[in-house]
Amino acid sequence: MNILVTASQALVGLFVDDGSLAVAILVIVLVSGILSILMPDMPLVAGAMLLIGCLAVLFANVMKAAQE
């Protein structure tokens, strides 16, 4: 039983370490998804949002962690 709990925690830990980074990534994906639905003729806008958003989120998160 103990090993199952450890394994479950490790499984979640694979994807979520800093909660704010995980939430920010999901928000970027959600916004990109909405853009791809609202602008089906311009799918690259959603791609640009996804790429630039992820880069910005990573940079901001690291800078914040360094200050703390």
Binding site: F15, I25, V29, L58, V62
Partner: peptide, 15 residues
């Protein structure tokens, strides 16, 4: 999405 969560977590820690 899982790769983004996983990969960016690794990259953040490595940075």
């Amino acid at each position: 999405v899982l790769l983004l969560l996983f990969g960016m977590r690794w990259l953040r820690k490595a940075i």
